[in-house]
């Protein structure tokens, strides 16, 4: 009798194991801060669902986002979540679009507020836990698998020198102009490249129009530092002596617009969905003027 009971127990256990689905979750240690960007990149999150021949039921993906102390800050609304039919005896590969469908994830408290305002969660370490549940009773169909990740949005550099609308002395600027900017925050785990771009604003051009339509006078990649000394090798003499010329009068001198484009280690813009999508910092303009002429005119 004992043998029969043991055999029955064994068979039940085996059947139970066979009807479970194995899942394997991988998450990038430092994924994009904007959660909606996860779906655009296949390397951010992958869930491999491997089921045995015995699996004959539909499942839903139950996802929870937790802080490291275990507090759940966001979870799938299973009632509206998509239903999947595992392929018996085969593996299915899913990504962030399936595992973290933002239209079905309900966040709470300050995290919900931050997400609605910014599309990002507050900078912190988080844990994502995934489990498959059966339809319709939501009974567990797989073990819970968790992975931790760190979220912090990159803030692009702020341009410091030359400051906005600063007037530089022609006699110095024609030999050297010092550019300074603040670094990307937080410091990236891989080196970022600061692409320094300087454009001349021609007559009858608006500032941003020059940036969007001219060839840059300087296009320099800089790694590891936030300063560059440019030797322009330009005659800063205005094109014409016409005093009514908008950007090229002796008093106003020449006008330039500069910006920094921040690139990741693959040479791609660091923040592709923030603002202009090109990871270009807010540009600033500066003048190169002949201070002797300007001084005389003032007198």
């Amino acid at each position: 009798m004992k043998k029969i009971i043991a055999i029955v127990c064994f068979m039940i256990t085996v059947q139970s194991l066979l009807s479970q689905i194995n899942i394997n979750l991988t998450v990038a240690g430092r994924p994009p801060a904007r959660l909606s960007d996860w779906a655009n990149r296949r390397d951010v999150l992958t869930l491999i669902m491997g089921s045995s021949q015995a699996v004959r039921f539909d499942v839903k993906i139950k996802t929870e986002i937790k802080t490291l102390d275990g507090t759940v800050i966001g979870a799938t609304n299973l009632n509206t979540a998509k239903t999947y039919t595992p392929l018996a005896g085969a593996s299915t590969i899913l990504n962030a679009l399936d595992v973290l469908p933002l239209e079905n994830i309900v966040f709470t408290g300050k995290h919900q507020t931050a997400l609605l305002k910014t599309g990002k969660l507050p900078a912190d370490n988080y844990m994502i836990c995934v489990q498959l549940v059966r339809v319709p009773d939501y009974a567990p169909a797989s073990a819970v698998t968790c992975k931790t990740f760190y979220l912090a949005a990159y803030q692009l550099p702020t341009l410091m020198l030359p400051s906005n609308e600063q007037e530089l002395n022609k006699s110095i600027a024609q030999s050297a102009i010092t550019f300074r900017w603040t670094p990307v925050v937080p410091a990236s785990t891989t080196p970022v490249t600061y692409r320094l771009l300087v454009f001349e604003i021609l007559e009858n051009q608006k500032d941003v129009q020059a940036l969007r339509s001219n060839q840059p006078l300087l296009d320099k990649n800089i790694v590891g530092t936030t300063q560059f000394i440019w030797q322009p090798q330009l005659s800063m003499m205005p094109y014409t002596a016409a005093a009514d010329s908008l950007n090229a009068s002796p008093q106003k001198g020449k006008k330039f617009i500069w910006t920094i484009q921040t690139l990741d280690n693959l040479g791609q813009p660091l923040n592709q969905t923030d603002g202009n999508g090109e990871s270009m910092s807010e540009p600033k303009v500066f003048f190169v003027i002949d201070k002797n002429v300007a001084g005389k005119k003032k007198e």
Binding site: A33, A114, K117, T118, K120, L121, P122, A123, A152, A153, Y154, Q155, T158, T182, V185, P186
Partner: peptide
């Protein structure tokens, strides 16, 4: 910078 605390405050 980062008054929303989505990145490190600067």
């Amino acid at each position: 910078n980062n008054i929303s605390n989505t990145t490190l405050k600067a």
